[in-house]
Design a protein around this nucleic acid. Sequence first.
RNA 1: UCCCCGAUAGCUCAAUGGUAGAGCGAGCGGCUGUUAACCGCUAGGUUCUAGGUUCGAGUCCUAGUCGGGGAGCCA
Length: 481
Amino acid sequence: MTTLSASRPATISVRDALRAEPGRRVSIHGWVRTRRDSKADGGLSFLAVHDGSCFDPIQAVLRASLPNYEQEVLHLTAGCSVEITGELVASQGKGQSVEVNVDPAPEKGGAIRVLGFVDDPDTYPVAQKRHTFEYLREIAHLRPRTNTFGAVARVRHTLAMAVHRFFHERGFFWIHTPIITASDCEGAGQMFRVSTLDAVNMPRTKDGQPDYAQDFFGRQAHLTVSGQLNVETYACALSKVYTFGPTFRAENSNTSRHLAEFWMIEPEIAFCDLAGDADLAEAFVKYLFKAVLEERPDDMAFFNERIDTTVIKTLEFLIETPFERMTYTDAVSTLEKCGEAFEYPVKWGVDLQSEHERCLTERIVKKPVILMNYPKDIKAFYMRLNDDGRTVAAMDVLAPKIGEIIGGSQREERLDVLDRRLDEMKLSKADYWWYRDLRRYGTVPHAGFGLGFERLIQFATGMANIRDVIPFPRTPGNAEF
RNA sequence: UCCCCGAUAGCUCAAUGGUAGAGCGAGCGGCUGUUAACCGCUAGGUUCUAGGUUCGAGUCCUAGUCGGGGAGCCA
């Protein structure tokens, strides 16, 4: 990092300072969390300063002999930005092992410079008190300064890095599938239109419809709802690939588990069947949760204390427990026999409700379950038809408490079967011409799955609302910031 | 999209149809190697918007806006 002044020691992050050996002169840049004053030792102020590099702030002990003590230090409030130079020392107080002693004596050379005060501390939106998440959502530009949102941001980063590391270590290539898609055939929900046509003076065809031939791409275009079909093309050339990027759904669903813009991870593996897909999914989830526990113990301890007191136990259980594998058909008959009274009755052919999934994972099997081979009529056209003719090679990973965390399938690699499925679902073969080409030219068995990144973060942190695990949530009626 | 709940000080919330309050935060002072600090004082309000009922509306009625919970759909 560039130093702002030649006479100061190099800037050190709060994270590194908290781990460093006492005795060293350091400079810290950060923001004030709290200030406490004392008349002891001729006058002291204690500043908690954070810079986001780790969960904990560092304590700076400011001496009243500082030239700007009366004028500036005694007016520091939450949110002020400061540059602190001093000596790392073992703390005399409880609650921290090291602190920065800021003593202006010539042999100490301590100093504090205020880079920015807070206008009108009375109305500073991130006052030093508890705030509701609903309120903090309205100040999404300031909420990363809080404990919770700082911790979420670090965990989100850690998980993203772990995703790439997991695949990289296993020889997967990261494929950047397009954000804008002109194919209207991804079939995973309502799409956002991408257009440069003048909405007021819309060019029309003879029959009065908007004339998309005059649009930017010469045809209708949308934001992607899934990179899967595109990434399959790379799996059928590079064998092991994945996408990890933003996706968009224009569904008018307003829940704590849905966003209009979210990030999705979709691996795709050639020469792989459903069992191999399930094995990969299990290893993947375990790797990610292990990474976050190992790399962010400070943030996880916070989530476990303040957000969800079972979150660490839940993650540890997921990591060490082999997942149960069960067919959809067996799951349905098990649920039918379990004697539980469901709001929605279970029977073969219907999709499982969340109450069914919870009963299965929490009361019957008591561990994560990978359900396989669902009825073809409740699943997508590209899933491989099983020999029984009525189920497809699909799998969902279900976990106790958290429900579905992954959905995947072996893809239909046989052109004639794929075409029959397209016909059955009244989809146009012409629209899928390039997808069908993969089956015409050297087709191979392949499989993959999808995992919603924000839901993963919810599971890992215990955060209840998905709007609080993405920096700037987009939901129906809200694209502020 | 459907059902339910809510909107009052910077924030979290009180207030029988009759003078709008508290806690936290903030400011000032006191005390203390402090750390969810503590003690005292002070300031802070177009009660979401627009109509309506009433002698009188934060409170009741209508519509709207925004937020939350649940459902559906899914990731």
